Simulated scan of single mutants.
Amino acid sequence: MRWESSRMMLPEHVAVLREMARHADRIAKPQLDEQKLEELERMIHDASSRKLPIDLDYYHDGKIHTLKNCTVSIDSCVQKVRISNPSGIAQNLPSQNIVDVRFSSRQDI
């Protein structure tokens, strides 16, 4: 009974443990070579000019996220890509955070 109180944790310790668990699954941003960057740029430009849907992987907050079957438009002045998903929700992504691009297998948007 005397050691029963030692099982309790201070709120500060709990907060630190939760923060460590939240950051445990983070990864470093992938470094792409020049050839891969040119390929991504070409595919995004093709998809934008031909209005083709793409699947796009991007890095944000320590994780790789995927957007499927979306359309893109390019804003080269601010180096951002505007992504619109099939339901019409749009977002701007910094072009340097894009990790991979594939033409979507589904052509009906």
Rank of each mutant, 00 (worst) to 15 (best):
72 V>D: 06
27 I>S: 05
102 R>D: 06
24 A>G: 00
43 M>R: 10
85 N>R: 05
77 C>G: 13
86 P>N: 12
8 M>T: 03
50 R>K: 15
96 Q>E: 12
12 E>P: 00
32 L>D: 02
40 L>Q: 04
95 S>W: 04
74 I>G: 00
8 M>Q: 10
78 V>G: 02
86 P>E: 06
82 R>S: 08
76 S>M: 07
30 P>R: 04
98 I>T: 00
39 E>A: 08
51 K>E: 14
17 L>A: 04
52 L>F: 14
42 R>G: 09
98 I>S: 03
83 I>L: 11
62 G>A: 13
25 D>A: 06
18 R>Y: 04
59 Y>R: 01
8 M>F: 14
31 Q>L: 09
44 I>C: 10
8 M>W: 07
11 P>G: 04
86 P>V: 03
83 I>K: 05
81 V>C: 13
46 D>H: 06
13 H>Q: 15
95 S>A: 08
59 Y>V: 05
34 E>D: 14
47 A>K: 00
21 A>L: 09
33 D>E: 11
56 L>H: 08
100 D>Q: 10
83 I>E: 00
63 K>G: 02
47 A>S: 06
87 S>R: 13
39 E>T: 12
13 H>K: 14
31 Q>T: 13
25 D>R: 09
92 N>I: 08
22 R>C: 09
96 Q>P: 01
41 E>M: 09
46 D>Q: 14
39 E>D: 10
90 A>D: 06
40 L>F: 12
11 P>R: 03
50 R>A: 14
24 A>I: 10
10 L>S: 11
32 L>I: 00
102 R>T: 09
50 R>H: 14
31 Q>V: 14
47 A>L: 01
